[in-house]
Every structure is written in C-alpha cells, then in structure tokens.
C-alpha cells in the first residue's frame, strides 16, 4: 500500500521533474490572485464610492448608471466566460501576456463583488458619523476617507476576506486560456501519467493550505482591530 503510494508519488512528481508543473503553476496562481486582488480592491472602492455617493446625495447619476451596468454584467455571468471573452474577444487581435489577461479578467470580476461589499459597509455606518464629519468641515470625500471607510472596512473585513478566498479558488479556471496555473499544472501531470489521484490531491491540498494560511492572517488582523476599539 505504502509502496504503491510512494511509487505513484515518484511517478507523478519526481520523474521528469514533474513537480515543476505544480511549482510553476503555484507561482502563476499567486501572481494572478495577488494582482487581481489589488485591481479588484481598486475598482471596488471606486464603484462603491460612486454608488454610495449616489445613494446618499443623488449625485453622479450617469456614473452610477455605468457602475450598475458593470455590476449587473459581471455578477450575472460566469467568470470562465468573462475570462474567455477577455482573452479571445477583448484582446482577440493582440498578443498580450496571459497573466495580464487573467489579472484583468479576475480583477474586474472581483471588483464587482468588492464594490457591493464595501458599499454595504459604507451604508452600515451610522448616518450621524457622516454628519459629524461634515459638520466639522470635512468635505464629502475626506469624511469618507477619515471617518466612514475605516469603520466600513472593519465591518466588512470578514466578507472581504471571503471574497479573496473565492477569488483565489476561482483563478483555477485560468487554464481555459492555456495559462499554466496550479490547477493546470496538475492537469498537465495528469495528462502525462494518467493518474488522477496524486496530481489532483496535491493541487487540492495546496489550495487548502493557502486558504487556511490566509484565514489565519485575517483572524490575526481582526483580533488586532478589535483590540484597538472596545
């Protein structure tokens, strides 16, 4: 039994240095996730600001319309389809780095979810906080930055963390545009060794470890934030 597993391990990962598919794939997955998260947060903030400004003041009507359109389209279509459209349609006639394509597709996808999370956070902060900021003489924007967003972000931190975990796992469809991410790395090994168990389990374990590690850091961060305000 053990020997069989050992042989399977050697066959799948050691022979012909097949572990490199996993290692290279992991690097691509981390790269795509990291930059997509940054893009997603950036877009999410922007859209959330536009949307909540519209909700609060009725201004930015046109921008709000486009933001709504963006949210509807992104949240109403599967991420794989968005990825394929980004690669084969939007960047159809250009030879563009695939990591960049994936970052753009996943970043725009995540941005829509981040936007709604942050908007929910902003709307959950008491209106009195907003009035207190404005009455001191802070502009709408600075009130947002100094007073509303810090409270909003703290409220939505668990939801945001969850979104990033979802994003990390969703990047596993990057193989659809022939990007060799972690999942595709496992697939390539599978296509060489015709063994499903080892490559798939290895890939799953790596994702799981990453998510657990990330969760650990988020828990630490939450604890520190909680300690700073009783």
């Amino acid at each position: 039994m053990f020997e069989k597993l050992m042989n399977s391990f050697l066959h799948n990962f050691i022979e012909e240095e097949r572990w490199k598919y996993i290692a290279d794939g992991l690097f691509v997955t981390l790269q795509v996730t990291f930059f997509a998260v940054i893009l997603g947060i950036f877009l999410g903030f922007l859209v959330a600001m536009v949307r909540s400004t519209y909700d609060k003041t009725g201004k930015l009507k046109l921008l709000n319309f486009f933001c709504n359109l963006y949210l509807t389209v992104i949240r109403g279509t599967p991420v794989v389809v968005q990825l394929l459209i980004t690669y084969f349609v939007i960047f159809g006639s250009v030879n563009i780095d695939k990591v960049l394509v994936a970052v753009i597709a996943f970043g725009f996808n995540s941005g829509a979810y981040v936007a709604e999370i942050i908007r929910g956070g902003i709307m959950s902060v008491d209106q009195g906080q907003f009035e207190a900021g404005r009455s001191l003489g802070f502009s709408y924007f600075r009130t947002m930055i100094y007073i509303i967003l810090p409270q909003a972000l703290k409220n939505v931190l668990p939801a945001l963390a969850n979104e990033f975990i979802v994003l990390l796992k969703e990047t596993s469809v990057a193989g659809y545009i022939a990007l060799q991410d972690l999942t595709k790395g496992g697939d390539i090994i599978r296509s060489r060794t015709y063994d499903a168990f080892m490559p798939l389990i290895a890939v799953a374990v790596i994702y799981l470890l990453m998510v657990m590690l990330f969760n650990y850091f988020v828990k630490q961060l939450e604890r520190r934030l909680r300690n700073s305000e009783h």
Binding site: D126, G128, E131, A132, G133, S135, L136, G137, Q151, S228
Partner: peptide
Amino acid sequence: LHRQKMGMVFQQFNLFPH
C-alpha cells in the same frame, strides 16, 4: 469652510468610535 466656524453638537454625540 464655513462649517469649520460653526460647531455642532448632536443628540447622539456621534463621536468617531474608531
């Protein structure tokens, strides 16, 4: 600018909790 010259005190205090 003018609001800086007008202090406001609310029923619900509205201190910044963070």
